[in-house]
């Protein structure tokens, strides 16, 4: 629990609000394909955050698996089921 603001805190302050905005947007759009694409953008921003926090192995796994495979799975499901959501 010794984490303190890192040297690249400018990147932190740029990326963290974008991550939170993407998380809110991924849950609030009514079009499910938009939700899937926004959650892919969320994964990519998390990947940038982990590169900046010196966890390069986590970052490239997230880029390949989180932003790649997860987005494809979510998009496939969103196109297969009824596309409009009620909330």
């Amino acid at each position: 629990m010794t984490w303190d603001a890192s040297l690249l805190w400018q990147f932190d302050l740029l990326i963290l609000p974008m991550v939170i905005i993407c998380a809110i947007a991924a849950l609030s759009f009514k079009d499910l394909v938009s939700c899937a694409v926004i959650s892919g953008a969320f994964s990519f921003l998390m990947c940038l955050l982990w590169t900046e926090m010196l966890a390069v192995d986590v970052a490239f796994t997230e880029a390949a698996v989180g932003a790649g495979v997860s987005t494809v799975l979510l998009l496939g499901t969103a196109l297969h089921v009824k596309r409009k959501s009620k909330d």
């Binding site: 998380a23 499910l32 939700c35 979510l74 499901t77 959501s85 009620k86 909330d87």
Partner: peptide, 12 residues
């Protein structure tokens, strides 16, 4: 209410 949004919430 939508199950796909519940799954997206789980990934977040």
């Amino acid at each position: 209410n939508n199950l796909l949004k519940k799954v997206i919430g789980m990934t977040i």
